[in-house]
Design a binder for these strands. Structure first.
Length: 218
DNA sequence: CTCCCGATAT
DNA sequence: ATATCAGGAG
């Protein structure tokens, strides 16, 4: 990771340009996870760890018909739930996370998903990444979701050189207007998936290449 | 830091 | 064969 150069003012100006470029390229960007309630998005996001959205959607299509409330997940034998989500990988841990999360929802929040960061992260299996996605995409609150894509792209365009996702989130909060938070991270995730890919970034198709020092340019 | 873990692209 | 995919817990 290269050292970030420039004053905070210069950095903010560059961030603004990048936000503008991405907003134009990905208007109305939102999560690709299929959901109809905040609770469904919460479960889908827990399942999405180290797994593509497409495969999560394939699993939740069946899952959400079978399990409709936190209590439904608590009533079933964990081995059965493991098999129901097996295709998303890490199925033993994810089953434990879902169970802990639903237990927390039932016992502490009357079965309702809280729309508050501090409350969300008290739930088992829910960290800031999961909480931010739910806050931004289900509750329409300002939230910067720092996933593997955001982490990679932000490093390449040198808006943050932190490796810890929480620190990246706080760096971006400092650089961006609050109104841009949700749209920016959603757009950045799409950009990371389709253009600024991990293995072979398509720099010649990149709308923010003018602001990016990343070397692999044609 | 390690571990969890299946599916897909390269 | 290996890297990678919307991470979190211990």
């Amino acid at each position: 990771m290269r050292k970030i150069v420039g004053t905070i003012t210069q950095l903010k100006a560059r961030a603004k340009s990048i936000v503008k470029g991405l907003r134009k390229a990905y208007p109305g960007a939102t999560t690709a996870l299929r959901f109809s309630t905040s609770f469904e998005l919460l479960i889908a996001t827990i399942l999405s760890a180290q797994c593509t959205d497409e495969r999560v959607n394939k699993v939740t299509r069946r899952l959400f018909k079978k399990y409709r409330s936190p209590q439904d997940y608590l009533n079933v034998d964990p081995h059965e739930l493991e098999q129901d989500i097996r295709q998303t990988g890490f199925y033993r841990n994810k089953t434990k996370s879902i169970h802990a999360c639903c237990k927390g929802l039932v016992e502490e929040y009357k079965g309702e998903v809280p729309d508050d960061m501090d409350e969300l992260v008290t739930l088992g299996g829910v960290g800031r990444k999961t909480a931010n996605l739910v806050l931004g995409c289900a509750f329409n609150k300002p939230a910067i979701t720092v996933d593997t894509h955001v982490k990679r792209v932000v490093g390449r365009v040198e808006l943050s050189n932190e490796t810890n996702p929480d620190k990246i989130e706080f760096d971006l909060q400092r650089l961006l207007d609050k109104k841009d938070w949700t749209q920016f991270s959603n757009a950045l995730i799409l950009h990371g998936r389709y253009v600024c890919q991990a293995r072979c970034p398509l720099c010649n198709e990149c709308v923010i290449r003018a602001y990016c020092p990343f070397p692999n340019k044609p």
